[in-house]
Simulated assay, not measured.
Amino acid sequence: MTASDPSGQLAEQLLRLTRRLHRAQKRYLDPVGITPAQSRLLRTVAQYEEPPRMADLAQRLEVVPRAVTTLVDALEANGAVRRVPDPTNRRVIRIELTEAGRATLRELREARRAAVEDILAPLSAQQRDTLGSLLTELMRGPGHHL
């Protein structure tokens, strides 16, 4: 990788930063006692106004329903979620956050904030604003520019 390959250098930097973020997040998540996949499912359940169905979660997370079942089983064993029957169709099961699940979400938010703070510590407020703007632009992806 040389200075004559700026795209390759950026790609490498982004990959290294992603790995650093994952390591930092894992360091902060481990004490909470939850895996990144369980964390993602818990955050997704919290995004719904009404408790979602398993199929809703599988679709939103872009995983097979069996993967959601495994994650829900683990989170239910931890007391973070519970399965509840749909009030209009008893055959449909919905996934509801418990108070313990909401407390875990608060811990997760703090853990993620601490992990990101570790990574961003060397940057000034202005540099953070610039980085945020650049990341927002990148997340829009191709074809979203006016």
Rank of each mutant, 00 (worst) to 15 (best):
G8Q: 13
G8V: 06
E12G: 03
L14A: 15
L15E: 12
R19E: 15
Q25T: 13
K26C: 08
K26R: 14
K26E: 10
Y28R: 12
P31W: 02
G33I: 03
I34K: 01
I34P: 04
P36S: 13
R40T: 15
R40A: 10
R43Q: 14
T44K: 05
Q47I: 00
Q47P: 00
E49V: 03
D56N: 03
D56E: 08
Q59Y: 04
L61W: 05
E62V: 13
E62K: 12
V63Q: 04
A67W: 10
V68G: 03
T70G: 05
L71C: 00
L71N: 03
V72M: 03
V72D: 06
V72E: 01
A74W: 07
L75K: 04
A77C: 10
A77Q: 15
N78H: 13
V81F: 11
P85L: 03
D86A: 09
T88F: 06
N89W: 03
R90G: 06
R90S: 12
R91E: 12
V92P: 05
I93P: 00
I93S: 15
R94T: 02
I95F: 08
L97N: 08
E99M: 14
A100V: 05
G101M: 01
R102W: 12
R102T: 10
L105A: 01
L105F: 01
R106E: 14
R106T: 15
L108T: 01
R109Q: 09
E110G: 11
E110C: 00
A114C: 06
A115L: 02
E117A: 15
D118F: 08
S124T: 07
A125W: 11
D129S: 08
L134Q: 07
L135S: 08
G141E: 07
G143L: 01
H144R: 14
